[in-house]
């Protein structure tokens, strides 16, 4: 029997049936896989935090290597001694602080509320690291990351990531040659909490000057670079109340 596919009734019924089928297939896939996906996201966050404090699988200067996902949970409890939540002047410990959504907290902060700010205290070879999560805006979409400082407010490592920056240009903020430049820079300018600028033409491509609050920008990625600068200074600004209490020099 040939179906008359031009009839309006058929078209509507077809559309309705298709929507139901597609909807259920997608819902089923999403709910079936959500546990696994959430677990992956959790491990990724732990890997990122540890990466910023220098606990990673990097072997040479070329590529970013995290510690493997199946070890990250135990390593995380090994190295991260304290997870703090800073809410105004109140500082509390919370072992799930790393799951706090920075995007939400940043929007609370920008609308004038008191955000819950997570901060991780890590310890490696008797050195203390204060690892601060960041969240900001690149050219196309969100960028985020972690920055690890010591008691002197000198950067010990960073990790950046992005949702949809241009491959080959802005997406390179997660490359080693960009991230490694931040190590050794201070977020202080004198006694001011300034952050670190991603600067074009600062005549320091090898990043030898560590006291200029600037790293060399990526060619062709001006807006992503500006986003990184803004993200760092915003974060430093939000956390400076707490950072003042731990700063030594």
């Amino acid at each position: 029997m040939a179906i008359n596919t031009d009839k309006n009734v058929y078209t509507v019924v077809f559309a309705a049936v298709m929507v139901v089928i597609v909807g259920s297939v997608l819902a089923l896939t999403a709910s079936g896989l959500s546990d696994k996906i959430q677990e992956n996201e959790k491990f990724e966050k732990q890997q990122n935090i540890l990466y910023a404090m220098g606990v990673n699988g990097n072997v040479d200067e070329g590529s970013v290597n995290f510690i493997p996902a199946n070890e990250v949970e135990s390593e995380f409890t090994n190295y991260i001694k304290k997870q703090l939540v800073i809410e105004g002047d109140k500082v509390t410990e919370d072992s799930n602080a790393y799951l706090i959504d920075m995007k939400k907290q940043m929007s609370i902060a920008s609308s004038g509320g008191t955000p819950k700010l997570p901060l991780f205290v890590g310890e490696k070879d008797n050195n203390k690291f204060y690892i601060i999560p960041m969240y900001g805006k690149g050219l196309w979409d969100a960028i985020w990351g972690f920055i690890a400082v010591d008691e002197n407010m000198v950067v010990q490592g960073v990790y950046f990531d992005h949702k949809g920056e241009t491959p080959g240009l802005g997406a390179n903020i997660k490359q080693r040659y960009f991230m490694d430049d931040f190590t050794g820079e201070s977020i202080m300018a004198g006694t001011r909490y300034k952050g670190i600028n991603v600067a074009k033409g600062n005549n320091d491509p090898l990043n030898d000057r560590k006291d200029d609050n600037a790293v060399d920008a990526l060619a062709g990625a001006t807006i992503t670079g500006n986003g990184v600068s803004a993200m760092i200074s915003q974060t430093v600004n939000l956390y400076k109340g707490y950072l003042k209490t731990i700063r030594v020099k």
């Binding site: 179906i3 596919t5 031009d6 058929y10 078209t11 077809f14 559309a15 298709m18 597609v22």
Partner: peptide
């Protein structure tokens, strides 16, 4: 053979 030709583009997109 069962796609209504009026909405075939939408069906393809879906």
């Amino acid at each position: 053979n069962i796609i209504p030709s009026k909405i075939r583009i939408i069906v393809q997109l879906v």
